[in-house]
Design a protein around this nucleic acid. Structure first.
Lengths: 151, 151
DNA sequence: GCAGCATTGTTTGCGTACAAACGATGCATC
DNA sequence: GATGCATCGTTTGTACGCAAACAATGCTGC
């Protein structure tokens, strides 16, 4: 098993192009790390990052249509559909038809959903803190400012 | 449909906790944006970011076992298995049994795989550049240095 | 009123991502 | 050389993430 660089193959690699240094690869790994921290620290072994986002936004906004919630949490209609289905089956979210628009489902938190989201949001800042922990406070501020402009 | 903040619900939100400002949410959105740019610019409508990573690493290293390639590209055994299966079915990768270890599959690029990866790697820097485009050169340098420490 | 277009939510299909459990093989130690 | 542990690759199940196509409903302009 060859573990050293393949000289013949490497000869055609563009100068200085290292996979591990590419933004995309680094973002993907940072995302993996954050997801692992989230699942370990958020306080409910079933709730994922996207489910958390949906719950928090519903808590903040009160009542929303499905696609609107998707837009607010950066999920396309197919993705938010599955997230809502799973949260509904756990009885954390309920839905009723919209009075004025028969296409829409009005989503809202159930009492159980409100109770859970309050508990999870107590841990949310800890997850963010742990994710940024390798950086100093000043670096964290810089990093967040730059990251925000890449979205 | 209520689109304004729900005062009653928002009253229990921890002070200053805004979903859109959390690292995890921003990383997720940056990842989505990068993936979209990658698919649009890499030059082959079938190749994904992880498939690209596997091809590039195989090109660089010459011949690797499946799990080893997975470790080098940050994919667990179950994930790299699917990636390799799809690349093999496209005849971009071939495998042979290892002489010394019957458990291992020795993976390597086929001629078609070598040809494709050379073409894709010409576009790789353009994808990275486009992803970082909202930042100035100095900011890009800062961002990459900080991001690298979060992995 | 109605024709054309936009939006809402659904489904299918494909591709990551990971946990958990598994059989096969390698290896270290006795 | 047999025991016990580690590693290799696989499978199953669950959960994003998005493209594409769809039926139902809403809306705009004639």
């Amino acid at each position: 098993m060859n573990v050293k660089p393949d000289i013949k193959a490497a000869a055609t690699v563009p100068e200085g192009y290292v996979l591990e240094d590419q933004v995309g690869h680094l973002i993907r790994r940072a995302h993996q790390r954050h997801t692992a921290l989230f699942l370990a620290m958020i306080g409910d072994s079933q709730v994922t990052t996207t489910q958390y986002a949906a719950l928090v936004k519903l808590h903040e906004m009160g009542e929303l249509s499905q696609n609107h919630l998707g837009r607010l949490t950066a999920m396309d209609p197919a993705t938010i559909q599955g997230v809502i289905r799973r949260l509904t089956s756990r009885k954390l979210i309920s839905h009723r038809p919209d009075k004025n628009d028969k296409r829409r489902r009005c989503l809202s938190l159930t009492p159980a959903g409100r109770e859970l989201v309050a508990k999870l949001m107590a841990n949310g800042p800890k997850v963010s803190k742990a994710t940024l922990e390798p950086l100093s406070p000043e670096e964290q501020r810089q990093f967040l400012a730059l990251l925000k402009r890449l979205t």
